[in-house]
Simulated scan of single mutants.
Amino acid sequence: MTSFNTIIIQNIVESLNVGLMVISHEGKIIFLNKAAGAILDLDCEQHLGFGWGELFITDEKSNAQFNQVILDVISQQKVGLKHIASYTLKDSTCPKKLSITSSYLTEDDATLGMVFLFEDITEIFNAEEREKKILSRNAALQKERIEGLDSLSQAVAHQVLNPVTVIGGMANIISRKLPEGDPLIHDVQVISEEALKLEGLVAAVHSYCDIPKPIPVVVSAKALFEEANKSANEILDRIGECIEMKLDCTVDKITVGKKLFHTAIVELLLNASNFTMEKITDVSVKVSRSENIITIKIADHGMGIEKHLLPHVLDPFFSTKAKGVGMGLSRVKKIVFEHQGTLQIESPGSGKGTTVTIELPCPDLSCCSKKNSD
């Protein structure tokens, strides 16, 4: 009479959505649950006792990847191996994607058989592949758009620079030739000042378009941000201001184009100072790693950004400053993009500060894996 415990185990095994197959040490199939039969297109009763090679190795090409997994398990004799393999049913041209987990049945150090768990992940795998293609296409479109804008901006800047230079130069010549006290002097000076503004705009466009591709090097993350803070304070010292940076860095090394990324951090620190009323700007910088992503958060307690302006702050030429060109944050965004990263700016509203979040892929996945396992 079958024991109650055996009945419970049999019912649990049969109700699993995951396929379970047990192969004896002689290579014969000694157990199949219903899910395994459905996934592998086998008859649970008919195929018991068959050698697995007899069922699956019908020729050199059919389900070669699947068969190699079983061979690897036999040869390596390791517990808990997990593989992804293709498996094609008879009379089908579309392969499934199976997640296969393997283990061994042992007793007193003797191997009794091998256990395989099969999970059909075809839909999940296909969805992930579609998402990868969409993301890849979006990245390609974004890159194409940026390159197109760069070419257009360079061409426009070149065409604008020459006439602007001539206008400014002629305005200065006319101003010097006019007699003292002539009412036209003021008007000519306005022309000259506006020409200078246009020259500054053209220079900003050139600076944006000329951002080079980063040459990644491994640098100390802490030193990178401390040096950027020092550079920002050297600039602010001329107007009697400074930044006090509170750095919380749990990442030892970071791989970036050092000079380029230094420029981006300096720009963000100066931007925080520009929108803080006090002479001393408190800025919090947190650098952390999660899985294979390095996250940089730069937060200030300044004027903040109004909700209706927030979607536009990264747009080229957008500025709320009277004398601003509006290319600073655009340059930062492009530098981050060149590092395959993302940039996000958040603010609860006017007077409530701003947080800039940069996410960069960690190129050393083994390092990240080790960090997570520590």
Rank of each mutant, 00 (worst) to 15 (best):
R238L: 11
E241P: 02
E234G: 04
T255P: 01
E244R: 14
K213F: 12
P212E: 14
D252Q: 14
V205M: 03
V251K: 02
H206P: 00
E234M: 12
T255S: 08
A223R: 15
D237M: 09
E234Y: 07
I243L: 11
A221F: 05
R238F: 08
L236E: 05
V251H: 04
L236P: 06
A232G: 11
V256Q: 06
I239S: 02
A223D: 15
I239N: 00
I243K: 08
I243N: 13
E226T: 09
V256D: 06
D248I: 04
A221L: 04
V218M: 11
V218P: 02
D248N: 13
I239G: 00
V256R: 07
K213I: 10
E227A: 15
D210P: 05
P214N: 14
M245T: 05
V256N: 04
D237K: 12
A232I: 06
T250G: 08
A204H: 00
T255W: 03
P214T: 09
A204P: 00
L224Q: 09
E226R: 14
E241K: 15
K213W: 08
V256Y: 05
L236Y: 04
E244N: 14
Y208A: 07
S220M: 03
V218A: 12
K222T: 13
A228E: 09
F225S: 09
V251F: 03
E244C: 11
M245F: 00
C242W: 11
N233I: 07
D237Q: 13
H206V: 01
S231Q: 12
L236K: 04
K213T: 15
T255L: 03
N233Y: 05
E227W: 10
A232V: 07
L247D: 02
N229V: 06
T250D: 13
C242A: 13
D248W: 02
I243Q: 09
E244S: 11
K222M: 08
C209N: 09
S231M: 11
T250A: 14
V217L: 13
D252V: 06
K222G: 01
C242L: 11
G240Y: 04
K246T: 06
D210F: 10
K253A: 06
I239Q: 01
A204N: 00
P212S: 15
F225M: 08
E241A: 14
S207N: 08
P216V: 12
A203V: 00
K222H: 08
E226Y: 09
C242E: 14
A228M: 11
K213H: 12
C249W: 03
K246S: 04
S231R: 12
V205S: 00
S231G: 04
L247W: 01
A228I: 07
K246R: 03
I235W: 04
S231H: 12
T255M: 04
P214Q: 11
H206Q: 03
F225W: 07
E227Y: 15
K222W: 01
I239E: 02
Y208Q: 10
L247N: 02
M245I: 02
L224H: 10
F225N: 07
E244H: 13
T250Y: 09
A221V: 05
V217K: 14
K222Y: 03
C249D: 03
N233H: 08
I239R: 06
D210A: 15
D237C: 07
T255I: 05
L247G: 02
T250F: 10
A221G: 06
A228Y: 08
H206I: 01
V205T: 00
V217T: 15
G240F: 04
N229W: 02
N229R: 10
K253S: 10
K246G: 00
E241C: 13
I239H: 00
A221T: 09
D252K: 14
P216I: 12
